[in-house]
């Protein structure tokens, strides 16, 4: 079972619909038992970083997720991906889950519109288990104003928008997508399927 972690933020049903469509057993849950029993975890999220981290902390799931992330695959989506990093500067300095080294700051560019919203193309930095079958130039759907600043070591796919926007990041069994795979057509479904097939 894939646990879609429900800590009070965001529309979790679109992630659930995509997993249902692909045929993967999944459950929207905030129960510690469910999360511990799950084979994999997805951390979704929309909204602001401080509010989301606060909800995660108050639901008592922060430590559990960090612990379980040592044992099984975790995929963070959009804000859920940003929460995998050390720290964010959205509104105020807020500590993240520190599962991947890096920080979250506003997209730094004067030439592009913020938020970065719409379909944009992917550039492959290096393969990881989730990028299998994804080709350079494939497009995915982004909606965000803040982005991860991290080492290229952790970047599998990125998009050029102003500077480099990390699209798919990974570190051991931890994965994150800045874009919404559940809203990115066939390419997004491919990435979710790759996650579903992870052992």
């Amino acid at each position: 079972m894939i646990a879609i972690i429900d800590y009070g933020a965001g529309n979790l049903f679109s992630v659930k619909n995509a997993l249902d469509y692909l045929g993967y057993d999944n459950k929207i849950t905030n129960s510690k038992q469910d999360i511990m029993a799950a084979e994999k975890m997805i951390l979704p999220g929309v909204g602001s970083f401080p509010a989301a981290m606060k909800m995660l902390r108050e639901s008592g799931l922060e430590e559990l997720i960090k612990e379980e992330a040592n044992k099984k695959p975790l995929l963070g989506i959009c804000l859920g991906m940003q929460m995998l990093f050390d720290i964010s500067y959205e509104f105020e300095e807020t500590k993240g889950l520190s599962l991947i080294p890096g920080e979250i700051r506003l997209i730094e560019s004067k030439e592009v519109k913020i938020p970065h919203m719409g379909w944009n193309s992917l550039i492959k930095e290096k393969d990881c288990a989730l990028s299998k079958g994804v080709n350079e130039g494939d497009m995915v759907y982004y909606v965000h104003s803040y982005q991860a600043y991290t080492s290229m070591d952790y970047i599998s796919l990125y998009t050029k928008y102003g500077g480099v926007i990390p699209g798919l990041v990974f570190h051991n069994n931890i994965y994150g997508t800045q874009f919404h795979p559940e809203k990115s057509g066939e390419v997004g479904l491919r990435i979710l399927k790759n996650f579903g097939e992870l052992k």
Binding site: L22, W119, V187
Partner: peptide, 13 residues
């Protein structure tokens, strides 16, 4: 965005 004809994604392998 061009959707590839061979891009169809089905359920678990």
């Amino acid at each position: 965005r061009i959707q590839h004809k061979d891009g169809a994604v089905d359920g678990p392998i």
